[in-house]
């Protein structure tokens, strides 16, 4: 379970949000500038809230009263960024393996093979990210986040840079992840059609505030 109760002021922008999500995929849904990415960055530990509390499972990631602020590298949260952010100086294989090496996890060739096959990135392993297409890049980024064995997966508009064909190619991977791997997911998007397919629960945002939380029926409201 994920509990987020945070306040953050960034220049002229103020964010104040409270929501909890059980297992499944929670969509942060709203127009650009609503503060969706800021929330995801707060959960990942890339920015620090001014006040509040973030709890994942039975671990407190942040609590300003208890003076707890777990560093990003200790949170074990997988993050797929909008632009992929693959490391340009490493091959795809090294990119995929990065999280496992940094977290000191045992090498598991069967798991790597399974994820490489699921994402269909086997032919790319020896290449460098520079010349990959947008869709290939996002699949590698997803594989990299999965292979660190995260306890929560953050997806920040992972399809925004892609055209409709590529989107259709990647969406099924997210569905399989949600249904087969039972991976808790926080999915950021401003596209209703994406959210409809991925999310089991919706947190609707606007201008730094949460305007509604609920099920898929919020999309038709």
């Amino acid at each position: 379970m994920l509990l987020v109760d945070v306040e953050k002021n960034l220049g002229g922008f103020s964010l104040s949000a409270l929501f909890a999500s059980e297992s499944g995929a929670t969509a942060l849904f709203g127009p650009s500038g609503a503060g969706k990415t800021t929330i995801v960055n707060l959960i990942a530990g890339l920015i620090k809230p001014d006040r509040g509390r973030i709890v994942l499972g039975d671990e407190v990631l942040f609590d300003n009263k208890m003076r707890i602020n777990l560093a990003a590298h200790k949170r074990g949260i997988g993050y797929v960024f909008q632009e992929g952010r693959l490391f340009p100086h490493m091959t795809v294989a090294r990119n995929l393996d990065y999280g496992r090496r940094m977290r000191g996890l045992a090498h598991n060739p069967a798991e790597t093979a399974r994820i490489v096959e699921m994402l269909d990135i086997g032919p790319l392993l020896a290449r460098r990210p520079g010349k990959l297409s947008g869709g290939e890049r996002q699949r590698v980024a997803l594989g990299r986040a999965l292979l660190m064995r995260p306890r929560l997966l953050l997806l920040d508009e992972p399809l925004a840079a892609l055209d409709a064909t590529r989107k259709a190619e990647i969406l099924p991977y997210f569905e399989r992840l949600r249904d087969e791997a039972k991976m808790p997911i926080v999915y950021v998007s401003h596209q209703a059609d994406e959210v409809k397919r991925i999310a089991t629960r919706i947190v609707r945002m606007d201008a730094g505030r949460i305007t509604a939380t609920g099920g898929l029926e919020l999309l038709s409201a």
Binding site: A72, H73, I77, R85, F87, Y98, G99, R144, M148
Partner: peptide
């Protein structure tokens, strides 16, 4: 691109490892 360093830290790299595996090679 400091976003790459952020990405490395979410993948479990502490500051020293981010420097050694990301910043320094990119500054080669």
């Amino acid at each position: 691109d400091r976003k790459l360093e952020d990405a490395a830290s979410t993948l479990g790299a502490n500051r020293l490892w981010v420097f050694l595996t990301i910043s320094l090679p990119l500054a080669l």
